[in-house]
Computed example of a mutant assay.
Amino acid sequence: MSLLVFGHKSPDTDSVCSAISLAYLKNKLGMEAKAYALEEPRKEAQFVLNYFNVAKPEILKAGELKGKDVVLVDHNEIAQTADEIGEANLVEIIDHHKIGGLSTDLPISLRIMPVGCTCTIVYSLFKENNVEIPYEIAGLLISAILSDTLIFKSPTTTKLDKEAVYALAKIAKVDYEKYGMEMFKAGTSLEGFSIDEIVNMDFKEFDMSGNRVGIGQVMTLDIDAVLSKKDEFLAYINGTEFDMLVLAITDIINEGSYLIYKGEDKIISDAFSVGACQGVFAQGIVSRKKQLVPKLTDAVKNI
């Protein structure tokens, strides 16, 4: 039976590139596999696909999962995956996040590593299986790692991420620093996007001590354009049904995030050691996985 490989909702560069690259590897190892996406890839991911001339994955349609063997990449949270995941046979998860709420009736293959990017794990799988990495797959892998690690500025960055980038840069024929900035510039422009589209552009939902918490993150080189609409963002955020919602506007150059939020000021001040106010700058906070989620989780727990 063919394997369906896909990442999380609102697919980012890692979600898209890890699905395509892993499906390629599975096929090289004699398994029939196809990469899908749950929604249209984000702007940065589309730039990467165009740059390396790779077709974007098909969007998974309603009803396609029933009875199918599924491999999840770059996520393992129920709220972040396909709505019909319960109708599929989940056979494998490859991820770099904390373990979420998914459960299975049968044992599955599970590869979760504390690295900066799922594509770093996929790169390791190519090496472990002695499968040559072609130019376009190398391009996808290095793009995702540079994206998730913010060109090594994120605290999630590990030695394995760096080693993968150095090796993949040679195959993909790119100067990784110059290419990484070109990718960020192409992917972080928010021109033409509405308030709700920006909030939900890179959005994930979590359960924190029984509270429904949403965390959106926008990485942009044009911070002023977002902060000038702070009141509009706040009006939208306060109108949601989440118990708490935080939008982190991440400044790649200055390595920190401006926070617009729905929730108690004390949670924000306790979590990030700041004087809580709308648009406050949290120095050094650039990673949702390693900073935003655990710090908010602890603050909510202790409130």
Rank of each mutant, 00 (worst) to 15 (best):
K98D: 15
K98P: 10
K98A: 13
K98E: 13
K98N: 06
K98C: 02
K98V: 01
K98L: 14
I99E: 11
G100D: 14
G100I: 04
G101N: 05
L102M: 15
S103R: 06
S103Y: 08
T104H: 12
D105L: 05
L106T: 11
L106F: 09
I108Q: 00
S109A: 12
S109C: 01
R111A: 08
R111I: 10
R111M: 10
M113Y: 13
P114L: 08
P114W: 02
P114Q: 12
C117W: 11
T118A: 15
I121R: 00
I121V: 13
I121E: 03
V122W: 07
Y123F: 13
Y123W: 13
Y123D: 10
S124A: 10
S124E: 14
S124F: 05
F126A: 00
F126C: 04
K127C: 00
K127D: 04
K127N: 09
N129V: 12
N129M: 13
V131E: 01
V131Q: 10
V131L: 04
V131S: 00
I133M: 03
Y135H: 14
Y135I: 08
E136Y: 10
E136M: 05
I137D: 03
A138R: 00
G139S: 01
G139V: 01
L140A: 04
I142H: 10
I142C: 11
S143A: 14
S143P: 08
A144N: 05
I145K: 09
I145G: 02
L146F: 13
L146I: 14
S147I: 05
S147R: 02
S147Y: 05
D148R: 07
D148N: 01
T149W: 06
T149S: 07
T149L: 07
L150P: 03
I151K: 13
I151R: 14
F152E: 00
K153T: 03
S154Q: 09
P155E: 02
P155R: 03
T156C: 03
T156K: 01
T157H: 04
K159A: 12
K159T: 15
D161P: 07
D161Q: 14
D161W: 12
E163H: 01
E163C: 06
A164V: 10
V165L: 00
Y166E: 15
Y166I: 14
A167F: 09
A167D: 14
L168Q: 09
L168M: 08
A169N: 12
I171N: 06
I171M: 10
I171E: 07
V174T: 00
D175K: 02
E177D: 08
K178D: 14
Y179H: 00
Y179L: 02
M181C: 11
E182G: 13
M183K: 00
K185M: 11
K185W: 06
A186W: 08
A186I: 09
A186E: 12
A186R: 10
G187Q: 01
T188W: 03
T188S: 15
S189N: 15
S189R: 05
E191W: 05
E191L: 09
E191G: 08
E191Y: 05
E191I: 10
E191T: 06
G192Y: 07
G192A: 00
F193E: 13
I195E: 13
I195R: 12
D196L: 07
D196A: 02
E197G: 13
I198N: 12
I198W: 01
I198P: 03
V199M: 10
N200P: 01
M201R: 12
